[in-house]
Amino acid sequence: MTRVGRWIGRHLALALGLLVLLYMYIPNFIVALMSFNDASQSRNLYQFQSFTWDNWLNPCAPLGMCESLRVSISIGLLATIVSTIIGTLAAFALVRHRFEGRSTANLMVFLPMATPEIVMGSSLLALFVAAGLGGQLGFWTILVAHIMFCISFVVVTVRSRLSGLDSNLEKAAMDLYANEWQTFWRVTFPLVFPGILAAALLAFSLSFDDFIITNFNAGQTVTFPMFVWGAAQRGVPMQVNVIGTLMFIAALTFVILGEVASRRRARGKVSAR
């Protein structure tokens, strides 16, 4: 009786888990499937017509799509680099130093994450216009906006990693003849690095993804999300699914590589002997 109960319990949990996973991943499968859809004959773009390699062979066929992708990736990379550096430094300051107004600073870092994007986007536009940059809206104003909202996320991510770090480790390093510089690079940084990496990945996907704030401050520049949004009014070109699938594969590769690396680290170098 209990054995049967346990069997059901174990397998029910497994079945439910698989269902949830399926629910989460079906959209990605549909996207991948649609990237092979030959939509040239049909008016109904959201239905699978017939199989073709065309979309994958000519991913840049839709006018302006690859240009928008290039803009999004450049902004994403730049925003990631700058916000990760600033955010990491800020996190160190907030965790490691006791100063006047520290708790206020902690709160202020959090606030932008809680602000509705629509509000932040419009106030940024107001700011740019007030600063006389109304005519220069484009790549650089988007970049400034993205760096701004990414910093909060970087600070929060790195801060949680850093405050979980035992400060005795740094004291131990100093006790073992490492000067301040060596202590940072040999102990602190390697231990905080996973947090910094996670923050950078988060920053990139936030920047790449952003539509609302970008839309306010883009001027004539078109990012990938804006392109897709615009195209959706007429009918999304099937090549968007190609890009979507590629992004998914890229993310998957990242996760798998990270998992493999951390497993190898956990096993130590025992197997390497």
């Binding site: 035992d166 005795n168 480790l169 004291k171 131990a172 390093a173 390697p190 231990l191 680290r265």
Partner: peptide, 9 residues
Amino acid sequence: FQNYALFPH
């Protein structure tokens, strides 16, 4: 150290 403080990495 009281809790060893071994470098985990």
